[in-house]
């Protein structure tokens, strides 16, 4: 699938001699080497960030700031956001929300998703630990699936006097590899990336980032190791059990010469 896509992209590139560097057009943050320094203002314009990247943005109290990042099977992403508040301000309540590629709100297992900054505090720190991303879920389930995740950072409680005050935001997504404990059967044919069906290489896309080593095919998990090790141990135990019934050496009752 990937090879086909790459070949397709190459063919397209050759054909698009008139539009040079079309393939470099993705608004990928890595294109300019640095982390993004601004945020989007809606799902459609969300700024794409990689996991492990520290994205910053300046905004105003009252803005809705959006970022998006890719998360793959077996990862448990943690979204951390820090808001730097101006010197003088009233009490403000900030909140970070995470949505999946279908714009469904995702629950946070742990972490202070909402926090109120007392007047005069210089920053608020928010965190959200998502559930482990599964390779597959039933269509009726709301389980996190591999694909795009959106982060929305906003102030939910703010007095009018504080509206529009300059604030700085910082977002970072890291994830923990949960290994085979979360490995399930089945997989999605395509990750849950919005606009994946209409994606072409030379167009502004709703989401354009892949995980560092591509989307996982989903067949590998450490369950193979566990099961194989179990089989070997079972075989050894079988031999052990067998040997126990035979005693050591030649049975005494057997006459010589047999």
């Amino acid at each position: 699938m990937r090879i086909a896509r790459v070949l397709g992209a190459a063919a397209l590139l050759l054909g698009l001699a008139a539009a040079p560097a079309a393939a470099d057009s993705s608004p990928s943050p890595s294109a300019d080497g640095g982390a993004p320094t601004q945020a989007g203002t809606s799902f459609r314009t969300a700024t794409e960030i990689e996991q492990g990247q520290r994205a910053t943005a300046s905004g105003s109290a009252g803005d809705y700031l959006y970022w998006s990042f890719p998360a793959d099977t077996g990862q448990r992403p943690t979204v951390k956001a820090t808001v730097k508040l101006p010197d003088t301000h009233a009490a403000q309540t900030w909140q970070v929300d995470v949505y999946d590629g279908l714009r469904r709100r995702q629950a946070c297992q742990y972490g202070a998703q909402t926090r109120t900054a007392a007047p005069g505090t210089s920053s608020v720190e928010l965190a959200c630990v998502l559930r482990t991303v599964r390779a597959w879920a039933e269509p009726w389930a709301n389980d996190p699936l591999p694909g795009t995740y959106y982060v929305r950072l906003t102030v939910t409680g703010v007095p009018t006097s504080d509206l529009g005050l300059p604030v700085g935001a910082e977002v970072r997504v890291d994830s923990k590899d949960m290994g085979g404990a979360a490995a399930v059967d089945g997989s999605l044919a395509q990750p849950l990336v919005p606009g994946v069906a209409m994606k072409t290489d030379d167009e502004a896309a709703l989401f354009d980032l892949d995980p560092d080593d591509g989307w996982s095919s989903g067949w590998w998990s450490d369950r193979w190791v566990w099961t194989a090790a179990g089989a070997v141990l079972a075989a050894l135990a079988g031999i052990g059990g067998y040997a126990l019934t035979r005693g050591s050496g030649r049975p005494r009752q057997v006459p010589p010469g047999m």
Binding site: A234, A237, G238, G241, L244, T245
Partner: peptide, 12 residues
């Protein structure tokens, strides 16, 4: 391991 061991015993 347990099942393997028991199987070995029975076999023996």
């Amino acid at each position: 391991v347990l099942v393997g061991f028991l199987a070995g015993l029975v076999w023996g």
